[in-house]
Design a protein around this nucleic acid. Structure first.
Lengths: 354, 354
DNA sequence: CTGAAAGCGCTAACAC
DNA sequence: GTGTTAGCGCTTTCAG
């Protein structure tokens, strides 16, 4: 187990001092001659020297790691988001540590606290949390947070944390308008048990589209699983199935369903089948997210695409700039546009069909 | 931004010395009086003192973080595994840092190197790698590795790294025997482009079952996507679909298909539909893994269950004991038993049916 | 049973 | 443009 080279070894080999090497390492190459730079670089290469992060951290307080809090990576859409975040972080020399919060504020806090103790000063919350209060003291102690997947408002008030998200309202709008354009007039909206901001927004877009088309909204066409149904993110599809089953059991059932997300949509398709009906012949279903699996289902899921890679990229960029203190003060909200992806789960309503 | 309490603050408040506090913190409470212990604990509680990890690491070289390398968390089965590993690690006070390797040895090495530089000395490789050579120098430098999802042998030779896996051979056997018991005699086996150990093992179990039943094996009934088809883990279902399409296009096509994993099985179901056939009426499909999504599909996937939580638990336990140097020398291979889960994607073959 | 003191490897004043 | 040096917070010998 060869002992690793230290900065002093580099200095000796390069025939210079430790601080000069340190200066170079920290981007202050202008303070020394071109030749010195070359000598030091040669020495670093020769010794395969890598700075000791803990030692550096002890001094600077900085760790090249960011935390990523997701409800549950077991949910394919979060898994995909985690993958995208990791790619974006990697490019910037950051490692990602993962935490599944199950949307439990206690877990969120415990995780954040653990990460904070490790010296981590940047975390990404990849879900729209119910509230952010429980992070406030960490923020005051120097933690930077970027929320991924959240509108710019929380409970109607402007939030004071950087955020990146897709335009959820437009997403709900596009999904709904697509059904309207296909000829549907009785369109339902389903979601799971968790009252997230994005859910409200998507529902808002659904209502917008109906209004625009002059279709009266109807509370009977909106269904969500009850809170008692359990944790939404691990079993999102079950939530969708349950909500859709309820919706379809009501009088004057809809001919088309907009689901809060693709997993719910997939569950809704299962519910339609459960009743002996067919998608899209009897009931059309449109999801939101565009997860990979949607293409695999029969029928392939019509959905609204969320630009996952771009979202992740923007999020990590925002966070890493915060960490490098390049941006002080001003809160940034980045909102990306979703796009409709027409596949096979939505078609004209049956009445019009025949 | 209140400055955090240090060990000396605790010592002062407790009316003792820094080293005594440190001794207590490091489990050497026997070196001091009961009273001292109490006083120190009170002080720690009062100040809400938490040791500074970087400082500790600088001295001890230990970081309470383990790395987790998966091919791609975007793959639901890996996502679920990552979730399980994280839960197991959390219990032991360990954080998990995530890396998607895409099964690229270069990426595996780069990741490992990054984590090593951070002081991380334990990593879990949650996939059966092709080879482990590129980890050897890290192991020599003190890295502990546990491979999750790998048999005890690699290319037929006993591997010298701790491993935990399901009994892949039995998994393949159970899936195949199920089809045989249903009356199938022309049974195919499909897998993706990556020649992992687990794939070979599962295929071995498939062959075992055929042999046991006195059914001649037939190379025409085995299909895998070509390497050129691209990365298996992100698009596992596409691989399954492609391999199944090929298999079903051959003369004397099988009446039942065993897929290397559930994603492939789901892809195979899609392939069956592509041809205008029905699962399980025309073709039965059995997967291996038991991912959550399998229950959602129509028909619900018959599969072989892999005890994910137990696997993760065993893996983290092994690793954390290595890290605490509780186990020296002896290599451990833990192999857990899979079980068949009968659902709806496999039934009697059509000939027997009518 | 307790405490003083020497670093772990690095950074950033500050002095030359 | 380059080098000296005082710590960052902790652990751990080693003396008392």
């Amino acid at each position: 187990m060869a002992t690793r080279p230290r900065i002093s070894d580099v200095a000796i080999l390069a025939g210079t001092s430790v601080s000069t090497v340190s200066n170079l390492l920290n981007g202050r190459s202008n303070r020394m001659s071109r030749e010195t730079v070359l000598r030091i670089e040669a020495a670093i290469g020769k010794l395969d020297y890598r700075p000791h992060w803990a030692a550096r951290q002890l001094k600077t307080g900085i760790v090249p790691i960011v935390g990523l809090l997701v409800p549950s990576v077991a949910n394919p859409s979060h898994g995909d988001m985690a993958r995208a975040v990791e790619v974006a972080a990697e490019v910037r020399g950051l490692q990602v540590v993962l935490g599944n919060t199950l949307r439990d504020p206690d877990r969120e806090r415990r995780y954040t606290s653990n990460l904070f103790d490790l010296g981590i000063r940047g975390i990404i919350i990849a879900s729209s949390p119910f509230a952010l209060d429980h992070f406030h003291d960490f923020i005051e102690r120097g933690l930077s947070i970027v929320v991924l997947d959240l509108g710019a408002t929380l409970d109607g008030v402007e939030i004071s944390i950087d955020s990146v998200s897709v335009d959820n309202r437009t997403a709900g709008y596009l999904a709904t308008r697509h059904l309207i354009e296909l000829g549907h007039t009785r369109i339902g909206y389903i979601s799971g048990a968790t009252a997230t901001v994005s859910r409200q927004e998507r529902q808002g877009g659904y209502l917008d589209a109906l209004k625009e088309a002059g279709i009266a909204t109807n509370a009977d066409l909106i269904a969500a699983t009850p809170a008692a149904f359990g944790f939404d993110d691990t079993n999102a599809a079950d939530h969708g199935r349950s909500a859709a089953t309820e919706l379809l059991g009501r009088p004057e059932r809809p001919t088309g369903i907009v689901a809060f997300n693709d997993m719910h949509a997939l569950g809704a398709c299962a519910a339609v089948r459960d009743m002996g009906l067919t998608v899209p012949r009897d009931i059309s279903v449109v999801g939101i997210d565009d997860i990979l699996l949607g293409r695999l289902f029969e029928p392939a899921l019509t959905t609204v695409h969320q630009p996952v890679d771009a979202l992740a990229e923007a999020t990590v960029d925002l966070l890493s700039r915060r960490l490098r203190a390049e941006r002080d003060g001003e809160i940034t909200h980045i909102i990306l546009k979703p796009t409709l992806v027409r596949r096979a789960s939505a078609g004209p309503p049956r009445e019009v069909n025949g």
